[in-house]
Each structure stands twice: as structure tokens, then as C-alpha cells.
Design a protein around this nucleic acid. Structure first.
Lengths: 95, 95
DNA sequence: ATCATTTGGTTTATAAAATAAACTATTTTA
DNA sequence: TAAAATAGTTTATTTTATAAACCAAATGAT
């Protein structure tokens, strides 16, 4: 058990980590809610959600709330596993 | 206590975090030792040590071992504080 | 003795990432 | 009905991380 484990670069990003941290505690969350909680700009959030989605770490559903677009996100099993692995690896650095 | 604390970007980098993690546990460490423990290339390590040094997080001393150059690093008080703050902030994301 | 290789780095170039600015489409409000 | 707000996306820019190329001295092989 020597050397430092590689930290998943997809999770080792402040904003994406915050998103995952949020999503791991809830069933699902809306774009606007995530934006407010993380303090991210819409553009940045949009890009980072895409990356998490493309990696299969979250699922993103686009629908409508009344007549306004509604983007809903939830963490996937793969995402939960990745997050847990990341946290375990990280502990090697900070404990 | 809402929102996510900003993670010190100087520490939120895999290699620099590994370096700090190493240095926090020892009195001092040599360039080659850090390089081996972290698995970094010399070039990358050199750059990242500079950044930590410029931030005042570590002190870097250049001398000679026999006739070969010897770069020795140690964490500073400021660095210890920054590391501890980083770890505390990070816990908000991963706990 | 000298030519190649290794050691211990630094500097510079490139690839990748984060972030913000600009934009789109619809909808609400004045 | 014109202006502004909502809910985003796309594109451009800045920053960062990383590796490749380089340098000087020392050691090893022929």
C-alpha cells in the first residue's frame, strides 16, 4: 500500500464534486437548485453536468415545469461507486 | 453553514496535495524521494514545488550532496494551516 | 582519455480543464 | 407590445496540469 492512488479526475474538480456531493444525498435535484447550492454560473454548471452525464455518473432528464424547461439530475449507481472510491482514495492524502 | 466552501486551488491538485501530504508527516524530504513517492515526472514536480514554494506553503533549499545537486523541501507553518483548512473544507464535500 | 549514460534537476511547449461571456428560446411582467 | 427575466446551451478565453526537451555535472564503459 505504497504511493498515492490516482484520484478520478472527473470527480477531482470542485464544482463536479459539489454536484455529486449534493446528489448523493437526495433522490434528484433540479438544475436551478444545484446552481444555487453550488454558486456556479449556469454555463459552467451546464458543461460540468454534461461531463458527469457522459461518464454515466449522473442521469439528466429534460422536461417541462408548466411551460419552462426543467432539467432534473440524479446520481447513478456507477456515480455512487465512483464517488465512494474517490473518497476512499482521497483519505490516503488527507489522513 | 450553507453552500460549499471554496477549496484552495493550490492544494486541490493531485500532485501538490500528495506533496503536502508527504511533507506534513516528515521533517523534510528530498526532491528525488518526493518524486519516487508521488510517481511524478521531474519536470512536473519541479513546477509544482515552485508553486507551493511561491505560495509560502513549503520551503525549498538547494544544496549539494557530495557533488550532486540536492533539493530539500519542508512544509511551513503557513502550509500546515492551509492544508488543515483544505481538509476541513473538503470534509463538507465528502461526509 | 573520451564517449555514452545516468543523475538531478529546470525551462518551455502542449494538452486539457475550468470558467465566463455571449447567445437562444420562451415566458412573464410592466 | 416592448423590456426583462428564466432556463438553459454554445463558444471562446483563461488557467492548469503535464510532458517533452533541455542543461550541467558526474559516473561508467571501451
Amino acid at each position: 500500500m505504497s504511493g498515492f492512488a490516482q484520484l478520478d479526475p472527473l470527480l477531482h474538480s470542485q464544482l463536479r464534486l459539489a454536484v455529486m456531493s449534493l446528489l448523493i444525498g437526495v433522490d434528484s435535484a433540479e438544475f436551478v437548485f444545484i446552481k444555487e447550492k453550488t454558486g456556479a454560473t449556469a454555463g459552467n454548471l451546464s458543461v460540468q453536468l454534461d461531463k458527469l452525464s457522459n461518464a454515466g455518473y449522473i442521469s439528466v432528464t429534460k422536461s417541462f415545469k408548466g411551460k419552462k424547461p426543467l432539467t432534473t439530475c440524479s446520481i447513478t449507481k456507477v456515480g455512487i461507486k465512483a464517488f465512494e472510491d474517490y473518497v476512499n482514495n482521497l483519505k490516503q492524502y488527507i489522513e
